[in-house]
Design a protein around this nucleic acid. Structure first.
Lengths: 218, 218
DNA sequence: TAGATTGTTAATCGATTAACAATC
DNA sequence: TAGATTGTTAATCGATTAACAATC
């Protein structure tokens, strides 16, 4: 039974919560505690944790340390990935500094940009290369993942080049969907669309947003 | 029959595609064309468009202009929203410049930050204020939506302040879930989690990523 | 023991896809 | 007309929730 993308995403968030934002002196955690913190139901938390091969104890809950350990195991967290930011504009540079420090196994080792002003410079300590050196540098540095931050008009063209250069996974921030061959992993984050969704539910009184959290005070 | 968040999100993306990345001389579009461009199925496109109250014509497809018009209608696109970026670090500033130009009705009119270095300055042409003036400025400027880009450790505290100040919708980029009272719209974008999802499917040969696109050449 | 929490199954819910008559 | 595409229904699929026996 393979793990769905939804479960995957939640596992990474349980881990982030437990490793970074959880009281260091709490050694155990109940499913309903995780649920409240994440805004999920306790049932869902328990179901997600089923796939870990680690089991909690009734009345004591889950050992935080074990939980983290087993999530790391399932997510194969020890594997190091070399990542390139493609498109070193405002968003690309911000993501470089934001993601650069977050997970040690996801290393941003290069940036690519068409703008000759940016090429051959260090940006946030990361070397930036001209786009047409992508294949060469990717091979040389063992880059398998690209964070795509180019304008929508360039997205498909640049994607096609990355595919030819042998990319294995793409995180797409460009505001258009991109097409890739099967076998390459793709996640798309459409920031504009997300903001529009918020705006829609801010106005309407009828609709229900995807996520609703209970008030902290209740 | 109210529109689900999923359909909502896809409608905004159809609109973006049609208004910005669609050949200007093509006046009609078939459901299967939209499907290919977006990476959805034709069935799904037709089902999504059902809620518009506008109908295509067999063999001619949908009029692009009408489609955009009716999506605007359903999404209430004429309503102007005033937006604040909360946390004017790298990511916040990048989002200001990225989103500032995208949709005229979503106006970024202020930024807030705890850092006194940033307060009382113009950032990308947008005035930045100290966090403790949030309530005052939000009232004065009619700000209803916040884009939250503060560190995870500050996210809940800042959120609580925004709620007190009367925020109506939040787009959360902080890497932790936040809790809010019911009645406030919330979308969360966890960039780290998204990158980890890509990394996971880049390695594994068994799992299936959420989205797969056909190769452009087939 | 009594009570709380677990893992897991079954029930529910919602979203996607397939199918097809209607239509141009 | 013949063939392609539509809107819509029914079928399928997958994800979430509820329920509860087992257990500490």
């Amino acid at each position: 039974m393979s793990i769905s993308s939804k479960v995957m995403g939640r596992l990474t968030r349980y881990r982030a919560l437990l490793t970074e934002y959880f009281p260091k002196d709490k050694l155990h955690v109940f499913s309903h505690e995780l649920a409240t913190m994440m805004g999920f139901s306790a049932s869902q938390v328990r179901r997600d944790l089923m796939c870990l091969g680690y089991f909690g104890v009734p009345r004591y809950g889950y050992e935080v340390k074990e939980l983290i350990h087993h999530i790391n195991d399932v997510l194969d967290a020890s594997k190091v990935h070399h990542v390139a930011v493609v498109g070193a504009g405002n968003l690309g540079r911000a993501l470089m500094s934001f993601l650069g420090s977050r997970r040690a196994t996801l290393k941003i080792v290069a940036a690519f940009d068409d703008d000759p002003q940016l090429a051959n410079r260090l940006i946030n300590g990361v070397p930036c290369y001209a786009m047409d050196r992508a294949e060469e540098i990717m091979k040389h540095q063992g880059i398998t993942i690209a964070i795509l931050c180019v304008p929508g008009s360039a997205a498909q063209r640049v994607t096609d080049r990355l595919v030819i250069a042998g990319i294995k996974g793409i995180l797409n921030f460009a505001p258009v969907p991109i097409r890739i061959p099967v076998g390459i992993a793709l996640e798309e984050i459409d920031v504009t669309s997300a903001l529009e969704r918020v705006a829609f539910y801010t106005t309407s009184r009828t609709g229900t947003p995807k996520k609703r959290r209970n008030s902290p005070q209740e």
